[in-house]
Computed example of a mutant assay.
Amino acid sequence: MFIQPWDAALDDAEWQTWVAEGHDFGILSVNGLPGHPPAVVPTHFTVDGTALLVHLARPNPDWKAIEADPNVTFTVTGDCAFIPGPWRAKPDVPATDGVPTSYYAAVQFTCQAGIIDDPAAKAELLRRQMAHFQPDGDHAPIDPDQPPYARMLPGIRGLRLDVTEVRAKFKYDDHKPVEQRTDTARRLTQRGTALDVPTAAQQLRRLNRIGTWKS
Rank of each mutant, 00 (worst) to 15 (best):
188 L>N: 06
97 D>I: 08
210 I>R: 04
84 P>H: 15
71 N>L: 11
50 T>Y: 06
122 K>H: 05
180 Q>N: 04
208 N>A: 13
20 A>C: 08
74 F>E: 03
205 R>T: 05
158 G>D: 01
8 A>N: 08
59 P>I: 09
9 A>E: 11
33 L>I: 07
128 R>C: 09
39 A>C: 09
85 G>K: 15
29 S>I: 12
168 A>S: 09
44 H>D: 00
132 H>V: 14
5 P>T: 06
188 L>E: 13
112 Q>F: 12
212 T>I: 04
176 K>V: 01
180 Q>S: 04
195 L>E: 12
191 R>H: 13
158 G>E: 02
116 I>A: 05
70 P>C: 07
205 R>F: 11
107 V>I: 12
210 I>N: 00
41 V>W: 15
186 R>E: 10
78 G>M: 02
176 K>F: 03
166 V>C: 05
123 A>S: 09
153 L>R: 05
74 F>W: 01
118 D>M: 10
18 W>I: 03
15 W>Q: 04
81 A>I: 08
15 W>R: 07
56 L>T: 10
172 Y>L: 00
206 R>P: 01
185 A>C: 06
172 Y>W: 03
74 F>H: 04
192 G>K: 11
6 W>K: 07
25 F>I: 06
22 G>P: 00
173 D>F: 14
214 K>T: 04
69 D>W: 15
112 Q>I: 11
190 Q>F: 05
111 C>V: 11
177 P>A: 06
162 D>I: 00
34 P>M: 05
197 V>M: 03
170 F>A: 05
13 A>S: 07
138 D>C: 03
88 R>F: 10
102 S>G: 07
73 T>H: 07
81 A>L: 04
79 D>V: 01
74 F>P: 04
200 A>V: 09
212 T>G: 02
71 N>S: 14
207 L>C: 02
116 I>R: 00
49 G>E: 10
40 V>F: 15
196 D>T: 01
142 I>G: 01
83 I>W: 04
5 P>Q: 06
206 R>F: 01
68 A>H: 11
116 I>Q: 08
141 P>Y: 15
103 Y>W: 02
150 A>H: 09
139 H>E: 04
170 F>K: 07
110 T>S: 14
26 G>T: 11
164 T>E: 07
159 L>S: 06
145 D>A: 12
120 A>G: 08
48 D>T: 13
54 V>A: 04
34 P>Q: 06
64 K>H: 06
37 P>G: 04
165 E>M: 08
19 V>H: 08
132 H>P: 02
52 L>W: 00
31 N>A: 14
129 Q>T: 12
39 A>Q: 14
126 L>H: 14
149 Y>G: 02
56 L>M: 13
203 Q>I: 09
68 A>E: 02
97 D>T: 12
181 R>H: 03
38 P>A: 12
21 E>H: 01
7 D>T: 05
91 P>R: 10
59 P>N: 13
89 A>Q: 14
180 Q>D: 00
170 F>Q: 07
211 G>Y: 05
34 P>D: 02
90 K>E: 11
114 G>N: 12
167 R>L: 11
8 A>V: 00
75 T>S: 09
140 A>E: 03
98 G>Y: 15
69 D>A: 14
60 N>K: 12
24 D>L: 07
55 H>F: 13
73 T>E: 07
101 T>V: 06
196 D>N: 03
149 Y>T: 01
169 K>I: 05
93 V>N: 10
82 F>E: 10
119 P>H: 10
92 D>N: 14
71 N>A: 14
163 V>D: 03
